Computed example of a mutant assay.
Amino acid sequence: MNASQTTIQLDRIFGALADSTRRAILDRAYRGEVTVNELVAGFDLSQPTISKHLKVLERAGLISRGREAQFRPVRIEAPALAGADRWLGAYRRLWEDRLGRLDRVVEDLKQQGDA
């Protein structure tokens, strides 16, 4: 995947995750396969509304939909989340470094106050 494709994919992932209902659907799929009817019942939303959310999640690569008889179970797709986690990891390290420096400054100030 080139840089432009990666950017587009990250935009889709974070756009999908920006909605609380879609995050809740992912949480439910994380616990195991789930059908649209189970999601409709669990979220008290209409089937077309759930289907729209699922399309956004599927386009972002966060879920896949299988086919078992008349059912299309929803499954979470970990690789897309791993890609987003890698991107966030750089920023996590940046903030951990900054907080580590801040901790050292606070310790130095405490030691100077004790002297």
Rank of each mutant, 00 (worst) to 15 (best):
R75Q: 11
A60Y: 13
A16H: 00
E38T: 11
G100S: 03
D27P: 04
F14D: 06
A115H: 06
G42D: 07
P48R: 02
T21P: 01
D11C: 01
R22A: 07
E77N: 12
R104N: 04
L10V: 04
G83R: 11
R12G: 09
E68W: 07
D103P: 00
L54F: 09
L102A: 11
T6L: 05
A69E: 15
H53A: 08
E68R: 10
L45F: 14
G113K: 02
R28D: 05
S46H: 12
Q70R: 15
D27G: 13
A3P: 02
K55C: 07
T49N: 14
L54M: 09
A69P: 09
D44F: 05
G66M: 12
E58M: 13
E58V: 08
Y30E: 13
G42E: 06
V56S: 15
V74T: 13
H53F: 09
G66P: 09
T49K: 12
V40P: 05
R104F: 02
S64M: 10
G83A: 12
L99Y: 02
G83F: 04
S4R: 05
I76N: 07
I76M: 15
V105W: 02
K55P: 03
D108C: 01
A84N: 14
A90W: 00
G66L: 11
S64I: 07
D108W: 04
L54N: 08
R22G: 08
G83W: 03
A18L: 12
D27T: 11
L62I: 15
A3W: 05
I25Y: 00
L94K: 11
T35G: 07
A24G: 10
L39E: 08
D103S: 01
A3L: 11
I76H: 08
A24R: 13
I63Q: 09
L17R: 03
R93H: 11
L88V: 12
I13E: 01
A80Y: 02
V40M: 03
F71D: 15
L10C: 02
A115W: 07
A29F: 09
E38H: 07
P79I: 06
L10R: 09
E58Y: 13
S46Y: 11
Q112A: 12
L62V: 15
R31Y: 05
A18T: 12
V74F: 10
Q5I: 06
D103A: 00
S51Y: 11
T49H: 13
A84H: 14
I50M: 14
G61H: 13
D103L: 00
P79R: 05
E33L: 10
G113F: 02
A18C: 10
R72A: 13
G32Q: 03
R22C: 07
A18V: 08
V34T: 15
Q111R: 08
D108S: 05
H53S: 10
Q47C: 03
L102P: 03
